[in-house]
């Protein structure tokens, strides 16, 4: 049975704004990324899953419980980390998390112990006894995560967990999220508008656009290999392209990279030898993969048109998008 099951879920606010429009999808346990338009769609969906907002029509079940009738029961097993600020500045982390643990149904002693443990797991040490008003954004985000974890939920809903964090804090939070999904063993849904993060952490993706399902699939499906090898050299790309073409490969230059179609094992050694003979500085050899953002593109990224052409003609690829930086650069 799916962890979360949505059938034709629709939510309209006042007849004017349609946040969700006939959303139908099954979500299995794992670390699931939820991406899409800001504001209405994702947050509304999370609130409906928590039983906090009534759907206009359609059905939703979480852990096999209907959200309309069993909201209170669902919330016993779900942890929620809201996007916005939600912590009182004059309480300490220990105070607020243990208080919320009690409200989640934990007996007093267990609440205290779990609070201490969970604060350790999220990385708050002596600062946990100080008032939250003095915390940095990173520390506040950790407290928010801690209160979502303290009652050991089966499902964790994280709304933009890296909001307001600098790159280092972002990395730490993502690592924490990864750990909750793998080490701690809970199902996690991460709502985010930063595709790089989703690619880094999630195993499954649900993309919503305009309140409808755009796509729902394992992450691997979105970042498959494209059958193209990208070769980057610090100088001499034109010479390399010419040489590889002469060797009989289908080649296109795209920005810094020379793209080679892979039809069988041939290209690797040809590329290597061409680079070696020309004495070029080789920076990168990499299979081009699709990226998550391709989902949202109107125009597909650079591809080699006749990629599997058996002859040695250079496939007419799209024009080079030259970045106007230093003149005279041989790219």
């Amino acid at each position: 049975m799916a962890l979360i099951s949505l059938r034709n879920l629709t939510k309209r606010y006042g007849g004017a704004i349609t946040a969700l429009d006939g959303l139908t999808v099954d979500i299995d346990p794992g670390i699931v990324g939820l991406v899409g338009s800001n504001g209405a769609g994702k947050s509304t969906l999370l609130k409906i899953l928590l039983g906090l907002v009534e759907p206009t029509s359609g059905d939703a079940t979480v852990l096999d419980l209907d959200v309309r009738t069993r909201g209170t029961d669902i919330r016993q097993f779900v942890g929620y980390m809201p996007e916005h600020d939600c912590l009182p500045p004059d309480a300490s982390a220990t105070d607020i998390v243990s208080h919320l643990a009690l409200i989640s149904g934990l007996p007093r002693t267990a609440a205290r112990e779990r609070t201490a443990e969970v604060l350790r797991h999220v990385g708050l040490y002596e600062e946990r006894y100080r008032a939250i008003g003095g915390y940095s954004t990173g520390m506040k985000q950790r407290v928010k995560l801690a209160q979502a974890l303290v009652h050991d939920p089966r499902l964790l809903l994280l709304d933009e967990p890296t909001n307001g964090l600098d790159p280092a804090g972002r990395d730490e939070m993502l690592e924490l999220v990864r750990r909750t999904g793998t080490e701690f063993g809970m199902a996690v849904i991460v709502a985010s508008h930063l595709l790089g993060e989703i690619e880094a952490v999630c195993t499954y993706l649900v993309a919503i656009e305009g309140g409808r399902l755009l796509r729902s699939a394992p992450l691997g499906d979105f970042i498959e290999q494209t059958g193209t090898l990208a070769v980057e050299v610090d100088e001499g790309s034109t010479a390399l392209a010419e040489r590889l073409t002469a060797d009989g490969l289908a080649v296109v230059v795209d920005g810094r990279a020379v793209l080679v179609a892979i039809s069988d094992g041939r290209p690797y050694d040809l590329v290597r030898d061409a680079v070696a003979e020309l004495g070029l500085p080789l920076v990168r050899i990499e299979q081009r993969r699709h990226r998550l953002e391709d989902l949202f593109r109107d125009v597909p990224p650079t591809e080699i048109a006749a990629a599997r052409a058996p002859t040695g003609e250079v496939a007419p690829g799209p024009p080079v998008s030259a970045a106007p930086t230093a003149p005279g650069d041989d790219r």
Binding site: L50, L52, T72, D73, R75, Q76, V78, Y80, P82, H84, D85, C86, L87, P88, P89, L100, I103, S104, G105, Q147
Partner: peptide, 14 residues
């Protein structure tokens, strides 16, 4: 004022 209601309402409490 501090948005804590969201944390209460997300729990097993009407």
């Amino acid at each position: 004022r501090y948005g804590v209601l969201a944390l209460y309402f997300a729990r097993a409490l009407r």
